[in-house]
Nucleic acid binder design. Structure first.
Lengths: 135, 135
DNA sequence: CGTATCATTTACGTTAACGTCAACTGATCT
DNA sequence: AGATCAGTTGACGTTAACGTAAATGATACG
């Protein structure tokens, strides 16, 4: 069993199992100052706060934010999570990102449409090949 | 004026202007064997074929193909552009890529939806802030 | 002849997000 | 003690698609 995570501290392998990331990733995030686990001697112990942050980090990645973007957002949450101006800034960043994503989706849609067109053409060429071969 | 592109040959800067790419890009593509311009002495002269290929390269990039993917597709076109099996292979690659893109689009849609949800929440928090400040 | 412009080759630099060793250190189990 | 883990730091490797700089060559103009 896991050593009974008394004050909800988790070892690096607990974290890996729970969040499906590698140790390298967690150390990397620490180096990037996205996480700051406690130390007992040399070993890392991840707190509830670290877990909350990691959750946000992974969500941010799903949104396509870079780690640097994420770090800045986390900093904003931290510094004075309750300052209205900070919240507004976070909100704006997210909205901008949303706009980007919708733009990206539009481009993707265009590319899909174009590629579909090419496929239709390809199918026609193939069909005419078979016709020619059948005579 | 451009030296009257007699047998439709273009210099590197003509190409850059026409396709909106840098010289570095064209040399890079040549190194990757995507293009194979003629040489007069040391200088490159791009033929009609090079331009056709570049068009396909750029289109491929819009589709999200890697240069390596594109090179292979171009090779297929070349080797025996009229062999049915080659055409089929090209067709299949394109279809697979289309599937990828539609998958990607689905994920993007999900992320957009989730992010929109977060934004709504963020807006609510902001609203409650203003309410609190107004009292 | 001088210079201005365009081109060429070579080769190292860049960015992101980790992967993959290597070489240890400690703790634990037997 | 010996062996076995789990963990640590450090450092170089990876991938894609070029950017950028340095040194040199070719050509045309006046």
């Amino acid at each position: 069993m896991t050593p009974a995570l008394t004050p909800d501290l988790m070892t690096i392998s607990d974290m890996c199992a729970n969040f499906d990331v590698t140790p390298r990733t967690l150390r990397f995030y620490e180096a990037k100052e996205l996480l700051s686990p406690l130390r007992i001697g040399t070993k890392r112990l991840f707190t509830k706060r670290d877990r909350a942050r990691l959750t946000l980090i992974l969500r941010g990645k799903r949104f396509g934010f870079s780690l640097e973007d994420i770090r800045q957002l986390l900093d904003l949450y931290d510094r004075d999570g309750s300052q209205e101006t900070q919240l507004i800034r976070t909100y704006d960043v997210a909205r901008a990102r949303l706009a980007q994503m919708e733009q990206q989706r539009a481009e993707l849609d265009e590319a899909i449409a174009e590629l579909k067109g090419q496929l239709v053409w390809g199918a026609e060429v193939l069909a005419s090949f078979r016709k020619a071969a059948a005579e």
